[in-house]
Write a protein that binds this DNA or RNA. Structure first.
Lengths: 202, 202
DNA sequence: AATCCACCAAACTGTACGGTTTGGTTTGAC
DNA sequence: GTCAAACCAAACCGTACAGTTTGGTGGATT
């Protein structure tokens, strides 16, 4: 009953997502969505009162399902732990954000985000905000454990996330042909440079 | 004659720019442009065969007129020179990109950039590409002068530009209310952290 | 058996807007 | 003074498309 409703909803969302991702938002008509979903127009509008609502739901779902920074379960005990965690984080961010599917999603999001203030705020909080916050938390933890002296965690997290995101943004979202994620050794060097910027001697 | 033509062209471009920046691209009709420019529709189409062409010209003009990184005329002789140059660069980038007018322009650009592959590539090269390249050049120069050991200039420039851009992108383009440029002391700390990441002892 | 709800197909409405056409007026060249 | 090019105002065309309406079917509940 409610199950069926949820299923239909999912069916529509999946169709919309597929079309939006390939044809873009403006390039996708509501008729196309009904066709792809195998659903009548009336039904579509019963679930999503307006096209923008449909977009919003697609985007929110898409964003929330990509878990970029799983909460760090285990403790950070020493410098090597921290280093490993940072490498893993950088690697996870780049590989997951540079998947073709994800790039398409992000381009869709970014293509609309600047037209809709509400969406913009949501995005800022959901993605970069989250990544920065988790990184900052990790660094604070390291500082609390005396592994590292982090005077300005807010700046520190940007010193780490910023460079990583250049690979994602410039070589992924903005590039003509999607670049592969950076080499592992490159990320290692990035992490070591970051650690050096925090005053860790090599 | 040719002067007059150029003037008319400018007049149309200015009107279009103003409207695009405030109402957005889709939110601006060609009729609105003619009204704002005080020009007939026929004339408008004589200068710009299509609405997209008009947009492209507005964007290209806007991008090229913002000179983010003036070529460094004077030499970099020692570490203090380099430090000063980097601080200046960071400051120039943040202040000029965080001007409300510029934010509006960038939002317009970014709002369309993901829909038009050609535009995307142009943008990538014209802005972030240019900034990275100039930074990299500066660092190479510093390295050549023996001021600093820069093993990987490509990574190094990202270690600098990345963090700076977080302030611009996250707190400017993506934020609800435009943030003021970061404090000078914050940028100084950023630069010092960067230098530390390059192995410079404080 | 009656009813109600979710669903479907398809025609329809309204409008916004990019682009064209018409027909007439100014401006400058020669 | 004439001619052509640049310009204007305004009506016009075509179409795409979001959202509505109509009329009808099937399956679960009472």
């Amino acid at each position: 009953m409610a199950r069926r409703k949820a299923a239909k909803r999912e069916q529509i969302l999946a169709a919309a997502r597929k079309l939006f991702l390939t044809q873009g938002f403006n390039g996708t008509s509501m008729d196309a969505v009904t066709a792809e979903a195998g659903v009548s127009k009336q039904t579509l509008y019963a679930y999503f009162p307006t096209k923008t609502d449909l977009l919003a739901d697609v985007l929110y779902a898409g964003m929330s399902e990509l878990v970029l920074v799983p909460p760090t379960a285990d403790e950070i005990r020493n410098l090597d732990d921290l280093r490993e965690h940072l490498i893993t984080l950088a690697s996870r961010l780049t590989t997951s954000l540079l998947q073709p599917e994800t790039i398409a999603l992000m381009r869709l999001v970014l293509g609309e985000v600047f037209h809709v203030a509400e969406l913009r705020q949501h995005f800022r909080e959901a993605l970069p905000g989250q990544v920065l916050a988790r990184t900052e938390a990790m660094l604070r933890q390291a500082d609390a454990h005396g592994i590292l002296r982090v005077e300005d965690p807010e700046l520190a997290s940007r010193m780490f996330v910023g460079p990583v995101m250049t690979y994602v943004a410039l070589d992924g979202f903005l590039s003509a042909d999607p670049a592969p994620p950076p080499e592992h050794t490159r990320l290692v060097r990035l992490v070591d440079a970051f650690l050096a910027s925090m005053g860790v001697q090599p």
